[in-house]
């Protein structure tokens, strides 16, 4: 049996794009935005590919949940080197709970040894899905991974915490979520892009998976945040310290 690594990905606006709220304040205006694989998920794809380079029996399956537009991003993951892709057809956006329900059903069917995914998506910044999934499956979790040393039975994972780097051991099957410093994702090569054209993207419906969406998070409003301040340019350190003396209670 191969060592299957399932890599769930999310399609998100490019982080260089300017986020503007629609006039009805219920959505983000995506008309001018380009989309990418969530950067943390791209790191997870890369780590799965490195795992395959270290071990012989690894198969890397990427998953996307969304409409047909998602196939571009899945094709990118295939061009990076993933073996195959699955698109679960669903209307976006889904909240982390419903994503975790879909993923746990996929995990039951595909029986991966490892689910490797980004620690958070940079659109809603929830950072919940990996933990929800691990809980639902009853698998060990290692979140915010910055190093993974795998063995036949499991892995030692270094994780980035608020108080330093913690090292955990987990046994397979496990859920690991990727932090920034786990690796730098490769770019798709030209041969990779050509090869990706021949790789399958399997489509699945929620009905086939037996999933009914039950929303947990209802968005009732969005507000644009301006963080601009009327900054004062100062010439000297003396001026700066005077301003701080007058406007803070620190002196």
């Amino acid at each position: 049996m191969s060592f299957l690594v399932l890599v769930p990905t999310k399609r998100v606006p490019d982080t260089d794009g300017v986020i503007r709220v629609t006039p009805d304040e219920l959505d983000v205006d995506t008309s001018h935005l380009s989309f990418v694989i969530n950067p943390f998920d791209a790191i997870a794809v890369e780590e799965a590919l490195r795992l395959r380079e270290r071990r012989e029996d690894v198969e890397v399956v990427v998953v996307g949940i969304g409409g047909e537009a998602y196939e571009d991003e899945l094709r990118t993951a295939l061009a990076m080197g993933a073996d195959r892709a699955i698109r679960v057809d669903a209307a976006e956006p889904l909240d982390p709970w419903n994503v975790a329900c879909i993923l746990s059903e996929l995990a039951r069917r595909l029986e991966p040894r490892l689910v490797l995914m980004g620690k958070q998506a940079v659109d809603d910044d929830s950072a919940q899905t990996g933990q929800f999934l691990a809980a639902r499956l009853g698998w060990p979790q290692a979140t915010f991974a910055s190093r993974i040393d795998d063995s036949d039975h499991g892995a030692e994972v270094a994780r980035e915490t608020d108080h330093g780097i913690e090292t955990l051991s987990v046994t397979w099957p496990a859920v690991i979520t990727a932090d920034l410093r786990l690796n730098e994702p490769r770019y798709a090569s030209l041969p990779g892009i050509l090869a990706a054209r021949g790789k399958p993207i399997e489509e699945m419906s929620l009905e086939e998976l037996g999933i009914e969406i039950e929303p947990r998070v209802e968005l009732v409003g969005l507000q644009q945040v301006s963080s601009q301040r009327t900054g004062q340019q100062l010439e000297t350190v003396t001026e700066l310290l005077e301003c701080l003396r007058e406007n803070t209670e620190l002196f």
Binding site: T15, I19, V28, V122, D123, D125, G221, L222, V225, S227
Partner: peptide, 10 residues
Amino acid sequence: MYAGAVTASV
């Protein structure tokens, strides 16, 4: 959300 560019009410 979006690195603090917007505040969502949920």
